[in-house]
Each structure stands twice: as C-alpha cells, then as structure tokens.
Simulated assay, not measured.
Amino acid sequence: MSISLGTAGLGGTWQSASATVSASFSVSDALFALSALIWVILLVRYLRHGGVRWRNIRDDLHHPGQGFALAYVPIVGMLSAGHVSHYNLDLARGVYIFFGATAAIIAAGLVAHWVTGGLDSAPLHPGYLLPVVSAPFVSSVTASTLRYPELAAATFAVGILYWLAFGTVILGHLVANGGSMPIPARPTLTVLIIPPATGGLAWTAAHHGVLDPIAYGFVGLLLFTLLIIAFLLPDVRQQSFHYGYWTFSFPVATSTNFLIRWLAGTGTSGWQAATWVLLAIVSAVFLLLYASTLRHVLRRPARAVAQEPAPAGAAEAAVV
C-alpha cells in the first residue's frame, strides 16, 4: 500500500499546485487514478487471501509488527474522497464517511490492543504514528474540503492528542534504542515528517489557507523535522533498492504539499517560482521511484519475487 499512498500524496501535491500556481489538474487526476488502481488490486488480493474473514482481519490487526498497515486502506480512501469532491460532492461525502469511520475503528482497535500489551514483542518505530496520528489529520483535511468543519475540528483534536502521546513514547524509544532498529526498517524514520505536514495541512485547510501563528508553528515543526531527517539520511540509506523505499514517498509528497500551501499563504516575492521548483523536485523523485520499481520487478521473475523471504524488519518498511 505504500505505492498507492505515496501516489495519492503526490496527486494531492499537484492538486495544491493547481490551486496556487495553475498547475495542470489533469496530472492530479491521473495520479489519483493510478493510486486507486494499485489500491484496488492490492485490496482484492488481500480479500482473496482470507481478508473477508473477521478472524483473519483481527489477527492482522493484532500483529505486533504489521497491524498498523491495515489503516493505509482507509487513508488512501479518504485522500481519494477529497479529490472526487471536485466532481461529485455527494459521492465524495459518502466515500469519506465510510472510510473515515473505518479509519477510526481500526485506530481505536489498535490503541486498545497496544495498551493491553500488544506491542510487547515489537520494536517501536514511527510507522505506528500513521493510523493514530496521520489518519485523523488526513480525515480533518478531507472534512474541511467536504465542508464538514465540526468533523474537521474533532478529528484534528484526535490527531493532536495521540501525536503528543504516542509521538513522545516512540521518540523516547528511538533515542534509547535507535541503534537496534533493523537496517531494512530504518526508512520508517522518515515517517516522523508526516504528522507536522498533515497536521499543518489540516489546520490551514480549516482556516482557508490563512497563515496564523499556529500554522507557522507547524511550519517550524516540519522544517526542524526535515533537518533531523537530513542528518539521518546516511542511516536510512539502503544497500540496494527494495519496495521499502516507497516509505519515503508519502512523507516527501505531503511535506511538499504543505510547503506549497505555506508559500502561497506568505505571498512573498518569488513564491510561484519556488512552488514550481518544489513540484519539479518531488515529481522527479517519484519518477525515479517508479522507474526503479519497474526495473526491480523486471529483473526478477514474478514467482521468485512472491517466494522470496523478507529480511528482518523489511515487512514493516514495505507496508508503510
């Protein structure tokens, strides 16, 4: 799901650029269509392999290393609902309510499992922030887009509370035990970028793009986190390409999205040119990811790919 999530994130970035510097909205359409196609294929495969049974879903949700991955299904659904609203508001609202409720149920189930000892056997990493922090922030952004201000405020509050709670625990664990994280799972460190980026987008969407002190606070948090990630690049770098590289995609896309909205809100000289530069850079990064993924698939037979055992920690990296 990391490919679908990242592609939807890039679609959102192009959508923001189309609203601020008149970038082509059709590019955003194409990206969301690609994200939906990948999403449907993976979801069908999951359902065909037992995902329709509640017992299997419960076991997957309680998996100590990968339980949080189920939340990516409704997150992509909510992002897509925000895009569909440009064509059919009523349909988008129905899609959003369904996936928003699904995201809330999954997040609540995860928290209930975690607080009863469900993470005792799993090393903590920032990937756990996505279902309980980023999903509520994405829900808030979409609710504002769909003109549900009260729901936007409610889900924003959920994201803030659990960002403070789980973010503190996970960051403290990383500081104390960061050296023990398996190398294939280290790209998940870039997920630290997502809460300030999605939280900033949620706040600015609720305030119609106006930059107030709180919005600038999110900008500061994002820029400082990006600086931390810059120092971590030697640690998250992998020896060879694998699907875990897509872990970088959504953090890159959503942070660029927020920076584009910030530049538009400042209205400073040259903000349009800076927006185009950011859009070109993030698009080039994704083109490189798509090309590398295609090359990775073509170099190995499909059967070998399906049967190859994942190295320790790679599963967590691949699903983010």
Results as ranks from 00 to 15, higher is better:
Gly6Lys: 11
Ser16Gly: 11
Ser22Pro: 11
Ala23Asn: 11
Ser24Cys: 10
Val27Ala: 01
Asp29Lys: 03
Phe32Glu: 11
Leu34Lys: 03
Ser35Leu: 12
Ser35Gln: 09
Val44Ile: 15
Arg45Leu: 15
Tyr46Asp: 04
Leu47Gly: 02
Val52Ser: 12
Arg53Lys: 10
Ile57Tyr: 08
Asp59Glu: 15
Val73Cys: 08
Pro74Gln: 01
Ile75Ser: 00
Val76Asn: 09
Leu79Glu: 00
Leu79Cys: 02
Val84Thr: 02
His86Ile: 07
His86Phe: 07
His86Tyr: 06
Leu89Cys: 06
Ala92Arg: 07
Ile97Phe: 07
Phe99Gly: 01
Ala101Thr: 13
Thr102Asp: 04
Ala104Trp: 00
Ile105Asn: 02
Ile106Glu: 03
Ala107Gly: 09
Ala107Ser: 15
Ala107Arg: 01
Ala108Gln: 00
Ala108Leu: 12
Gly118Leu: 06
Asp120Ser: 13
Ser121Pro: 03
Ala122Gln: 08
Ala122Pro: 04
His125Glu: 11
Pro126Arg: 06
Gly127Leu: 04
Leu130Ile: 15
Ala135Ile: 00
Val138Glu: 08
Val141His: 03
Ala143Ser: 09
Ala143His: 00
Thr145Phe: 04
Glu150Ser: 13
Val158Asn: 03
Leu161Thr: 07
Val169Gln: 04
Ile170His: 06
Gly172Asn: 09
Gly172Cys: 15
Val175Asp: 14
Ser180Leu: 12
Ala185Tyr: 01
Ala185Cys: 07
Leu189Met: 14
Ile194Met: 09
Ile194Glu: 12
Pro195Ser: 05
Pro196Ile: 04
Thr198Gln: 10
Trp203Met: 08
Ala206Gly: 05
Asp212Thr: 05
Ile214Glu: 05
Phe218Thr: 06
Leu222Glu: 11
Thr225Glu: 11
Phe231Thr: 01
Leu232Tyr: 05
Leu233Ala: 12
Gln239Glu: 14
Tyr243Pro: 03
Gly244Ala: 11
Thr247Ile: 13
Thr254Gln: 12
Phe258Leu: 13
Arg261Thr: 11
Ala264Asp: 14
Gly265Met: 05
Thr268Phe: 14
Thr268Tyr: 15
Thr268Asp: 12
Trp271Ile: 00
Trp271Pro: 01
Gln272His: 13
Ala273Pro: 09
Thr275Gln: 06
Thr275Lys: 10
Val277Lys: 04
Leu278Arg: 05
Ile281Cys: 12
Ile281Thr: 06
Ile281Tyr: 10
Leu288Gly: 12
Ser292Lys: 14
Thr293Lys: 04
Val297Pro: 01
Leu298Tyr: 07
Arg300Gln: 15
Ala302Leu: 14
Ala312Lys: 10
Ala315Asn: 11
